[in-house]
Design a protein around this nucleic acid. Structure first.
Lengths: 279, 279
DNA sequence: CCAATTAAGTAGTTTTATTACATTTTTGAC
DNA sequence: GTCAAAAATGTAATAAAACTACTTAATTGG
């Protein structure tokens, strides 16, 4: 299992100090790399030996080795800079680069998938009285896609890409409801507000966003998707693809959880389209 | 430039000791990672400060930082995926299958990409007075995604996911306009009608759909995406992902075609979001 | 060949990481 | 609840590693 995934997945069974460390590393993985053990220990609020023991527990030989592993991990999950696109590329080159970057982004998303959170999210969606999806900008289309998939189930699903409607909907949530907030960066203030409102109402708030971001912190459950494409100009939004695939996983797992009784319903959904088709 | 490549490329213009170091690092990159500076210096036959200076010359902050960079480099070049799904939980198996299917779908889309059609589509979008995007159901979110990307350019873009509005918009197209119709199956009657209406108006009609389908036949230009997910019940819509990536390629190629003057506009688009962000 | 310049080394200093041991906290039996 | 055992965490000293200032050697261009 990848280091970051291991951190997330084993967090529950670890001690208090170790959880603090995990939280910090997940939130600022890059920062850890150029931080000496003393400063990290101080920042997290634990002692140096605790950090060292933690590194060993994670399978490293010590703190420096832990940093090396983390560096490898991060490098791998970040599509390499050589993949940026330059002017003068023919369409086929552009295509090759974009497909490659997308493959890499998918691998990264797969390796970093937090199954614990995923299972919990499936539970939440399964038990929800109603599901509300919120996204803005590019994430609005992700939300819409998710809605389309979730419509096949028997839980009412609504999607909002209008911040006023989002607020109204979020303010009206009940405890049995489930709110899904989508954002690449996790830094869009409006969505962070929505997540907070959802939690204030007692609803289960799921974030499909960058780990460690403001939105991630505001959500009860986080399905992590590294952002990262906000920097380059021409680079496509590969993490959006990762989000969509995670939604696929989420919905498919949910379908399985709903059980075979639901196969009929899915068949009916499909059948409903027959009249719209030509040959 | 990547670190290893830089090592190789600059070897000629470096001093004797540095060349010895480069040779050693290129020969045993992995070994360097768990070697302290003293041992490395001894192994290469130079002094410790020489190693340190060398690391700085390579752009690192010092020896430890050099190792971190090297670790990232190596991680990236190592066969990336170790498809290790351990736990017997449902979610990880579902995830593995879906990611695999998505990879396959991407490969297929890449291999079947018609660059001629792609270039023509880019030309059409480049020259268009206005762009209209139409999609229904799951394709509506694809259309919305495309719109979000195209909004950065200076051509007016509208998206319709309502069949009445689609018809009104399609009926009002002019010769200089471009209509993009999106559908997995290419068999949705409503969208086929829209494409025909668009052609009747003299607009350039681009179809992002299954090759050979009714919609494909109705369009002037076809960007082919194999459907195929209509059969299985639980299988996710992987071809939607392929469509999105093709849109990435289309838009990126268009951006390059628009030229460097457009970099400013893209930057402005990005900058416009600054006010919406939190830390 | 000899200043000027650059490269490399030595030795000492500082920073960083680790170890051994002490203290606190948690756990589980009664 | 109380107490002992075990686990977790912290303190302080030690060891390891990296870096700096300075010296010596090598290289280069006149």
């Amino acid at each position: 299992m990848s280091l970051m995934a291991e951190l997330r997945n084993t967090e529950a069974r670890r001690s208090k100090s170790e959880r603090k460390l995990i939280d910090y590393v997940l939130a600022n993985p890059e920062a850890v790399l150029n931080t000496p053990i003393a400063r990290l220990a101080a920042a997290v609020g634990v002692s140096e030996p605790t950090v060292n023991r933690f590194c060993r527990a994670m399978g490293a030989q010590g703190f420096p080795d832990f940093k090396l592993r983390l560096a490898g991990e991060l490098a791998r999950s970040r599509p390499s800079m050589t993949r940026d696109i330059e002017v003068g590329d023919a369409a086929s080159h552009v295509a090759a680069k974009i497909f490659e970057a997308t493959h890499a982004s998918l691998d990264s998303a797969h390796n970093n998938l937090d199954y614990k959170a995923l299972e919990k999210a499936v539970d939440a969606l399964h038990d929800a009285r109603a599901i509300v999806l919120c996204g803005l900008g590019a994430s609005a289309s992700v939300a819409q896609d998710a809605q389309h998939k979730l419509l096949r189930f028997d839980t009412p699903v609504t999607t909002h890409s209008d911040i006023i409607n989002q607020r109204v909907a979020a303010a009206g949530l009940a405890e049995q409801d489930c709110l899904v907030c989508i954002s690449y960066t996790g830094r869009t203030r409006a969505i962070v507000d929505i997540a907070r409102m959802g939690r204030d109402c007692g609803a289960t708030v799921i974030g499909l966003t960058a780990p460690g971001s403001a939105l991630a912190r505001a959500c009860e459950l986080v399905l992590a998707v590294e952002g990262g494409e906000d920097t380059e100009l021409y680079t496509p939004m590969t993490s959006r693809i990762a989000q969509l695939v995670i939604i696929d996983v989420l919905v498919t797992t949910l379908a399985l959880r709903k059980g075979s009784a639901f196969a009929d319903r899915l068949r009916a959904a499909k059948h409903s389209l027959a009249g719209t088709r030509v040959r």
